[in-house]
């Protein structure tokens, strides 16, 4: 089920990117959702990590299931939510695959904001939640045999994505892509590694509020990734950092299948470019 969904979303992302200036209008009319809400924890119990996270959009009043986000909410803080309504969930009607009691967003990202929220926890009310399954974006253990990638190698860029206003490398998501990148770099031996940080510093109105990241966050992201590469053993002399210009939301999502079609998420990134 995952591949067709990703392909579909990648296609919609490409369409959005192609329409450029019309991207925002196109997204508003599509399955794209961007809002701020106080998250609600539904105490389902299908084993470890099986609780549900719900968020009611103040924009359309619908309750969304945001549990599939790589980083989960904190019920004491507001959350910035960006996602796409998953296939088969468009109507939000009963009878659809609905383990948590909300319209499923997938892909979806959740950023914890500083604004406090009342702690909302509701009972399972018959919803089963989801049994935990190890995500595919799980870093392999060090004792696993990993043969080096085979060339030929050429100039290539790798994006790494971050939560709002944060340079934290998230577990079982951004760390996975960083690990993949590091493995490729170990195989390719590039002459130079250029780390460019981006921040969503141009304001966007979300749920009636103007939101923009701190000006320094792009630099912090680039430095976090550069530091990580140094800690992973790459020669500091080959690594340089830059800050890229935020092209705003009109640019649309970058073309990458990690977070298909999530334009705000794609503004909060680092690009690591290997040069030969």
């Amino acid at each position: 089920m995952k591949k067709p969904l990703e392909m579909r979303l990648a296609l919609s992302a490409a369409v959005l990117a192609a329409t450029s200036g019309h991207a925002v209008a196109a997204q508003a009319a599509s399955d794209y959702r961007l809002f701020v809400a106080c998250p609600v924890y539904r105490d389902t119990d299908s084993g470890r990590k099986s609780g549900c996270w719900l968020a009611q959009s103040p924009d359309d009043g619908m309750q969304y299931d945001v549990t599939l986000a790589p980083a989960k909410p904190d019920y004491a803080h507001a959350a910035l939510i960006e996602g796409r309504v998953a296939a088969g969930q468009e109507t939000g009607q009963a009878g659809q695959d609905n383990p948590c009691g909300g319209i499923v967003l997938a892909p979806v990202s959740v950023s914890i904001l500083e604004a406090p929220c009342p702690r909302y926890m509701i009972p399972a009310e018959g919803y089963p939640g989801r049994r935990f399954a190890l995500p595919v974006t799980n870093v392999p253990p060090l004792d696993m045999d990993r043969p080096l990638d085979k060339g030929p190698f050429a100039k290539r860029s790798f994006p790494l994505f971050f939560e709002f206003d944060s340079s934290f490398i998230s577990y079982q998501f951004t760390d996975y892509y960083l690990d993949k990148l590091a493995h490729w770099l170990r195989s390719a031996h590039p002459r130079r590694i250029v780390v460019t940080g981006y921040g969503a510093t141009r304001p966007v109105t979300v749920s009636g509020k103007a939101m923009a990241e701190r000006p320094n966050v792009a630099r912090e992201r680039a430095e976090t990734v550069a530091q990580s590469l140094r800690m992973l053993g790459f020669d500091a002399k080959t690594i340089s950092t830059r800050v890229g210009r935020d092209k705003g939301r009109d640019r649309g999502p970058i073309e990458d299948d990690t977070i298909p079609g999530l334009s705000e998420y794609s503004r909060r990134r680092v690009e690591v470019t290997a040069e030969f």
Binding site: D45, G51, Y75
Partner: peptide, 17 residues
């Protein structure tokens, strides 16, 4: 546990977490 890792606050698990 509940921050900054991304497991969420709260998160359901046992001692072995």
């Amino acid at each position: 546990i509940n921050a900054p890792v991304g497991f969420g606050n709260p998160v359901r698990y046992s001692c072995r977490f």
